[in-house]
Amino acid sequence: MSEFVQFLMSGLTVGAVYALVALGFTLVYTASDVVNFAQGEFVMLGGMVTVFMAALGVPLPVAALIAVAAAVCVGLLLYWLAIAPSRGASPVTLIIITIGASILLRGAAQVLFDKQFHKLPSFSGDVPVNLLGAAVQPQSFWVIGGTALIVLLLYLFMERTVLGKALRATAANRLAARLVGINTTTVMTLAFGGSAAIGAIGGILVTPITLTSYDVGTLLALKGFAAAMLGGMGNPLGAVMGGILLGLLESFGAGYLSSTYKDGIAFVVILVVLVAMPQGLFGRRSVERV
């Protein structure tokens, strides 16, 4: 039992981070049809900027805020300098642009920061909490709780505010959105900025557990993308479920089968799911009438 809880908690923790990355993918994808492979770099920026600001003597909460702001700036620049000018380009071209941006950001981080691994202090100490016999790091609760809070806030924003509804409307029908006066450029700016902030917060929350370095974004983007696909691309709830599922798969795979193949196990399950259900687990069934 204690072993099971241990794997469950570590799976939820990792899964929460995947969920945040997947949410970033989904947000940008619904608003602009762009699959932004630089999403992982926002997570890296969140962790790295916080680490280096803290090293300069900036208090941790302030450092974290600066990191989120920095990631948002990078997200907006990515949109204004690379995505907006290529409006009308094919999806493949846009994907390649974001991959290029991701490589650029990684290179810049390598020069600006360094190539070492870095750690942040845990937010509330390193004394493990005993949960049903399992020793859980307190930071895990920060990661899971922080993710839950972001998901809740994003949900309220999308469902309750006119701007959030405008974002969903743009995703549903761009032509109609423009005809009612929704400025689709604003919506896309919002999506890129928001996804950058979400990624950065994920990076800050998880760095005390997993460490960070200039290149953590690559694998995170891959996992986050897989999670978004698993949940059904373009469905925020699906992205979160996909992320958590992926985290649990990895954790239980590593725990009960073999840690060597933990990435492999997760990806095999995803392949099977996508072959059987190309829409993803929570993909929207088309209910439109013509």
């Binding site: 006119v162 969903r168 409307a169 549903a172 029908n173």
Partner: peptide, 15 residues
């Protein structure tokens, strides 16, 4: 070209 996933009320609000 209605906003399919949104409610009737939300469609009108966005108008």
């Amino acid at each position: 070209q209605v906003f399919g996933p949104l409610s009737v009320e939300d469609n009108l609000r966005l108008g």
